[in-house]
Amino acid sequence: MNSTQVLDTKGLSCPMPIVKTKKAMDTLNSGDILEILATDKGAVNDLAAWSKSSGHELLDHKEEDGVFKFWIKKG
């Protein structure tokens, strides 16, 4: 997927992944895609909830060698 920016939150625990995601998203434009890397096991549910309540679209997510990858499109 064509991401506008990649954000690495590997090794960080709650609430850092969503705080960093929010900050990164603030610098992007509507329609841009932010790719997020995380190792926090709560991140799958957290980023889904964050996207939903912040008006962004979680396009896809997958796990690769213990690292979660997310693609969120800015609303």
């Binding site: 709650c14 609430p15 969503i18 929010k22 912040s54």
Partner: peptide, 11 residues
């Protein structure tokens, strides 16, 4: 503070 920063991150 985790709830507060989380809520702030959710706008």
């Amino acid at each position: 503070f985790i709830i507060a920063t989380g809520a702030a991150a959710m706008g």
